[in-house]
Design a protein around this nucleic acid. Structure first.
Length: 366
DNA sequence: TTACTAACCTATTCAACGT
DNA sequence: ACGTTGAATAGGTTAGTAA
């Protein structure tokens, strides 16, 4: 099977995740929301059947709209307070029903969790089938599990604060390379590989570029390799450690933290990183590709060993740009939106240490 | 190109339930 | 009362799609 076909399947699977609700569905949801903004599981299930979408989508929709409603109410409340100095009664919270998982179900979930902490929709749906638990509950279960059972493979990272790619000017400003079939070890992937012992340098990179600094203790590498070079034509890789190389069904558009993914692959990158459901009819290409990447990962390891050294040099290079980080994030976004990039910030990837990378190579040579 | 929004994430908090 | 853990919320991001 052609690699492109394999990717086609992955794309199809990835796209399946985004479903546009039609007007009828929206109307129904709005009607239900008016009646009860906090439908219970049974109601959501009923709605899901009625509308022909999944219960978890119903849940997401209601979550979103509760948020929106709260915001609207808050604004109204503010107005009222301003005009009358009165407080508004709180919205009554709906009661919670607790799902009781059997040992059998828990065993299946734990097994799946150990294989893959970030299951995609296909995996979750398969688990739902296996266990009889609604997919949305499985989603929640994994969220809770991740929160309460930190990955031991990740070690201590309480101080490992590095900016997300999305806020990282050297990466963001430079943009992703144009889609091509050439697989370059481009640097967007690099921040995900930050060692946990980044010294607190004079330039706090968390400033203005790390969200929720006070709360987040683990660098979220989840968005690091989410380029858009994965659309219709994507037999494309940006970042050779990108999840796209995995047969994992959500690999293409995954938001799962890449760190975990990489670490899993570091253990045995030739293995599927944990998908219990490789949705490929013919995945024979994948191990070859992964073998290819495994060899490249060896190069990356050498790269990582030099991390501290060049990170320091990068800091030195960037210190003059410190004022760039001072504005809040919104300010940063505003500047980016207005293309007001400070001259002191390395905008071209070629001028940064990010260029420290293995050679580009092609994956479609056969 | 831009706005909207579905889907996803982490962190935190609430609350049901078993001990 | 307390610990465990399912559920919900807050606040964020990415990326697909329609306007």
């Amino acid at each position: 099977m052609e690699l492109s076909h394999t990717f086609g399947l992955l794309e199809k699977e990835a796209r399946r995740r985004r479903i546009i609700l039609n007007q009828n569905q929206k109307n129904t949801l709005h009607a239900w929301f008016k009646k009860n903004p906090n439908p219970d599981l049974a109601t959501r299930g009923h709605l899901a059947k009625e509308l022909g979408i999944s219960e978890s989508q119903i849940m997401t929709w209601f979550q979103k709209h509760r948020k929106i409603q709260k915001q609207v109410e808050f604004e109204c409340c503010l107005e009222e307070i301003q005009t009358q100095g009165q407080d508004k009664p709180k919205v009554k919270e709906a009661g919670r029903s607790r799902t009781h998982f059997t040992k059998f179900q828990i065993d299946i979930l734990i097994e799946a969790f150990e294989k893959n902490r970030f299951p995609g929709i296909a995996t979750r749906e398969k688990l739902a089938q296996q266990t009889g638990i609604p997919e949305s509950r499985i989603h929640i279960w994994f969220q809770n599990r991740r929160a309460r059972h930190p990955d031991p493979k990740q070690g201590t990272q309480a101080t490992a604060q590095l900016p997300q790619n999305s806020q990282f000017p050297a990466l963001k400003a430079s943009g992703q390379p144009a889609p091509s079939k050439t697989l370059t070890s481009s640097l967007p992937v690099t921040p995900a590989l930050c060692p946990p012992h980044i010294p607190p340098g004079p330039l706090d990179l968390s400033m203005g570029c790390q969200k929720q600094l006070s709360k987040t203790t683990v660098f979220q590498s989840s968005q690091v390799v989410q380029g858009r070079g994965n659309g219709q034509n994507s037999s494309v890789f940006t970042g050779h450690l990108s999840p796209v190389i995995t047969p994992e069904e959500e690999g293409f558009h995954t938001q799962a933290p890449l760190r975990a993914f990489i670490q899993e692959r570091w253990q045995d990158p030739r293995e599927n990183s944990g998908s219990t459901v490789p949705p490929l009819h013919d995945s024979t290409q994948i191990p070859d590709v992964n073998q290819h990447f495994w060899e490249l990962d060896q190069k990356d390891f050498a790269f990582l060993q030099n991390w501290d050294e060049w990170f320091q040099s990068m800091l030195a290079e960037w210190i003059p740009a410190k004022e760039y980080w001072s504005p809040g994030k919104s300010e940063l976004h505003r500047r980016q939106a207005q293309h007001q990039q400070p001259a002191s910030v390395p905008l071209e990837v070629d001028k940064t240490p990010w260029q420290f990378k293995p050679q580009a190579f092609s994956v479609d040579s056969h």
